[in-house]
């Protein structure tokens, strides 16, 4: 069994991701297509929410992955700080735009869903507001990457920001619950609960979640390859200017 740290070698990472990417993109596309078509065309309406329940197949997976993308960035930042593997720092950079897109999807589908169900596009509910704050964290993180020219300095500073931001994101979450009891329902899926949503909605939702996870992994791989190349390009540029 190969150690996970072998991927820390950019050459190794490029070779493995080159072989894995076609599979990942195919699987992600297939899972998304199956899940969304299944959800959109072949599931019944909810007896209270009508056909708006179909939005769940986009809303829940994107919201889950918006948070998971940040957690992945946090882990990658920690690995960069502790072990100084470049691939790790670049993977964190590559994941941020994906995370912010998922956050926007979760917010947009939530607003569209909220309009008929709650009668409002937006409410200052803890869950909604924490996603708005998560969005701001993503923006700040990406802006810091953009602003710093030297890639190693940028990797260090964004990693520190990611760590501190994570702590404050958790504090904000509890502050918001304290601030306002919400309109949003509780968790849709949890392992310890007897009563999740009904099976007809549950299985296509699982396929959609798998699709979003696979799409995230495929895009992170692809974008990390781009970042590795960009970093090499930067190094060559420096060398050329020195000669």
């Amino acid at each position: 069994m190969a150690s996970v740290w072998e991927f820390a070698n950019p050459r190794k990472f490029m070779a493995v991701s080159d072989r894995a990417l076609p599979w990942l993109f195919t699987l992600a596309g297939a899972a998304l297509a199956i899940g969304l078509v299944w959800g959109f065309f072949f599931t019944p309406d909810d007896f209270r929410q009508g056909s708006t329940v179909k939005i769940i197949y986009l809303h829940v997976p994107s919201a889950m992955m918006a948070i998971n993308a940040w957690i992945m960035m946090l882990l990658a930042s920690l690995i960069w700080i502790v072990r100084r593997h470049h691939v790790s720092a670049l993977a964190a950079k590559a994941a941020a735009p994906i995370g912010v897109t998922f956050t926007v999807i979760a917010l947009a589908t939530g607003a569209i869903w909220g309009q008929p169900m709650w009668g409002t596009w937006w409410a200052w509910d803890p869950r909604l507001t924490s996603f708005l704050i998560l969005f701001l964290f993503y923006l700040g993180y990406m802006a810091l990457w953009q602003a710093i020219e030297d890639p190693d300095t940028a990797a260090d500073l964004t990693s520190v920001l990611c760590l501190v931001g994570s702590v404050f994101a958790v504090i904000s979450r509890y502050a918001l619950i304290f601030w306002n009891q919400g309109l949003h329902q509780g968790a849709t899926l949890s392992l310890d609960k007897e009563e999740n949503i009904a099976d007809v909605f549950y299985f296509p939702l699982l396929v959609c979640i798998a699709g979003f996870v696979l799409l995230f992994i495929a895009l992170v791989f692809y974008r990390t390859r781009t970042e590795i190349r960009a970093r090499r390009l930067y190094a060559i540029g420096l060398k050329e200017r020195m000669v």
């Binding site: 959109f40 056909s51 939005i55 986009l58 999807i105 947009a108 589908t109 569209i112 309009q115």
Partner: peptide
């Protein structure tokens, strides 16, 4: 609503 959510 549903179609615009999917489209967006």
């Amino acid at each position: 609503e549903v179609i615009s959510a999917y489209a967006v």
